[in-house]
Design a protein around this nucleic acid. Structure first.
Lengths: 157, 157
DNA sequence: CGCAATTATATCGTTTGCGATGTAAACGGA
DNA sequence: TCCGTTTACATCGCAAACGATATAATTGCG
């Protein structure tokens, strides 16, 4: 019986899963200084690009469910990073706005990507590798986000 | 002020984080049939390769902390997939052994990697891409696992 | 030998992440 | 207009993930 595919070293998902956790851990010392977790940092990055977004819009950008974001945003409101404002036009919708504190954190965050990058760049990893990896992963995201959405339509569970 | 590095699309960590979650989601329908979560499946894969391992050994293979594994293994014991046996030689150590049920699940799991792979293989993603990605990620794991371990030694938080 | 340091695992508290479900507002067709 | 459907969020429950801490067994050094 050929079990080679079931070996951890032959899996593709396991390295992704591991690298994801390791990267988050690599961010930790930098984010800790700002009192942020990685998902909170992601929310701020979205808002630094476009302030005043609905919960659903942020969820789309981060590919997270609103039921993950709702409590996360509440914690960020308590930390005085954002304001949650119910929309006047549509009473169901909640708009997220950066506070002054949230806006100012951008200055502290600016050097982080460079620092992370420099940790990665070694004799074995070059910038071109990183860019290539990013392109590949973005292609995977396209495929997987379609597949995982349509699973209940294309096949019975 | 150049903020381009702070944009989500220019980040490398975010695609990894997203693909990791999407992959886990892609596994879900297959694992659900066996009543498993993805981390439980990882533990089983380790044990299918080498039965009777200590908690620490499993933690090393999966790069997880024992405080993540302890409750996970307890749940798996309750599900009758494994037995937790305190070692005679070293009373601190707990050996994890597959039950018959745990061993038999391997047969149901065998076709999963092929199925996942076929979902990924499209006109835009080829097997060679996947293998290349895997090699790259394994290189990153090496770098990152050293970096994240030594962070408290090389720089003050 | 005796005791401090190390090791193996477990427990606690917090944050994510997500499926299932709830609730209220908005929409849309008869 | 009325009512079923959809949409936007929120809540609940559970499983990870991890830092900090606890506990018991083992090691090793003087």
């Amino acid at each position: 019986m050929d079990d080679s595919h079931l070996k951890l070293n032959n899996q593709i998902c396991f390295p992704i899963y591991s690298v994801s956790r390791l990267m988050t851990k690599a961010y930790k010392p930098f984010l800790e200084k700002m009192g942020l977790t990685y998902p909170q940092y992601l929310v701020l990055m979205v808002l630094w690009e476009d302030d005043e977004l609905s919960v659903t819009k942020i969820a789309e950008r981060l590919m997270l469910n609103t039921n993950t974001l709702s409590p996360l945003l509440k914690r960020m409101e308590k930390m005085n990073l954002i304001n949650r404002i119910r929309s006047g036009k549509d009473e169901r919708s909640v708009n997220i706005q950066l506070t002054e504190k949230g806006k100012k954190l951008k200055n502290e965050a600016r050097p982080i990507p460079e620092k992370l990058l420099s940790e990665l760049l070694t004799e074995n990893i070059e910038l071109s590798d990183i860019l290539q990896l990013k392109e590949m992963l973005n292609e995977w995201i396209k495929i997987l986000s379609i597949k995982t959405k349509n699973i209940e339509l294309t096949q019975p569970l």
